[in-house]
Design a binder for these strands. Structure first.
Lengths: 192, 192
DNA sequence: TCGCTATGAGACATAGTGTATCGGAGAGCA
DNA sequence: TGCTCTCCGATACACTATGTCTCATAGCGA
């Protein structure tokens, strides 16, 4: 018998779900959110159109699920001093949310964020998770002395994530570790 | 007779054009780019559907025109030293591209930027105009001594515009003059 | 093996899209 | 004022997309 209350999901369901979500990812990357429709997704996934409607009656939910599976994970590191941790945190963000093929997911989240409660909740959650992490590191750094104590944690978030986002999404140029280091040196590190 | 070669535009054309573009702006603000269709625009503008198709056979062109009329103007100031000018430039950007009711236009430009050559050209032009202005001010400031000479003009653009964009679009919080001042002090001003 | 559930295929009404046509109203000019 | 030309709105049309429903089939768990 399966563990009490925990029913094993039907492998057919998980199979179609992953096939569909993979198709959504692919469509989102190649053509943006406007290309993601029930029909196009069904065609791309090799799945019946009615099946897509069954699982995700609304497009928002479909987009939200696809975005979540892509941007959901975010492994923060907690070793060393706060500045070092902040550095690896920012690099993780660069290679995660702002990675070449993930940027569309993030901008979609931003622009479609207010469309539906589910989407809005996802937007808040994904953003807040990163914001909170940066914020607490800045606060810790003010104590252990590795980060400028006059830096307002609330603004620091924009100071640090903003330039990365701008360079990647507005300018469409790569964000190198050197960029992040210079950013930290100018903004966050304790002045000599 | 009208001036050689320059024919005065038909007032009917300019009238419908402005009515339609106003409707697009309104739809874009209230519901985002996905709400902007030939039908919805025609309905909102009180104009025949065929008329919209006549002027803008493609939606991209319609969006591009609406975005251009909104974000097209950008009055830069050139008095005082470079840092002062940079400050007023950033404040102009805050009250222009990133103003409450203009932010959608900018994000639309970002996400739909690659859709069509016209849209892409507009995106480049609008961004480059601001980028170029900031860049040249930073270069000037390195000479007149008001801006940190070790600041790479290329990166300065992201350092300055990024945080503003992040605070406004990602966090959805207001960008005050004080925010800009602190930003300039930390990033651009010559270290004491 | 057997019930149960998810799926694919298709039917269906409805709504939206893009194009073409046509009469009427307004602009420009003498 | 009267004339011509252009633009507009309305309508028709073929076509595609959307959302819902039904039903036979195949794979699942026991």
């Amino acid at each position: 018998m399966s563990p009490a209350g925990e029913t094993q999901p039907d492998p057919r369901v998980t199979a179609t779900r992953s096939r569909v979500l993979a198709a959504v990812s692919s469509l989102l990357e190649s053509g943006g959110p406007s290309e993601v429709t029930h029909s196009s997704v069904a065609r791309a996934a090799g799945v019946g159109r009615a099946t897509v409607y069954r699982h995700w009656p609304r497009i928002d939910a479909l987009l939200a699920d696809a975005i979540e599976t892509r941007l959901g994970v975010n492994p923060p590191a907690t070793t060393g001093d706060a500045l070092t941790d902040l550095r690896s945190m920012l690099l993780a963000i660069v290679n995660g949310v702002f990675a070449d093929d993930s940027a569309v997911f993030f901008t979609t989240l931003l622009i479609r964020g207010g469309d539906t409660p589910q989407m809005d909740a996802l937007r808040r959650e994904i953003i807040e998770r990163r914001i909170g992490a940066i914020r607490s590191l800045v606060e810790r750094g003010a104590v252990d002395g590795s980060i400028d104590p006059t830096l307002d944690p609330d603004r620091a978030v924009s100071y640090l994530a903003g330039p990365i986002m701008h360079r990647r999404i507005v300018l469409g140029r790569p964000v190198t570790p050197d960029f992040v280091d210079d950013l930290l040196l100018r903004f966050a590190a304790t002045p000599a």
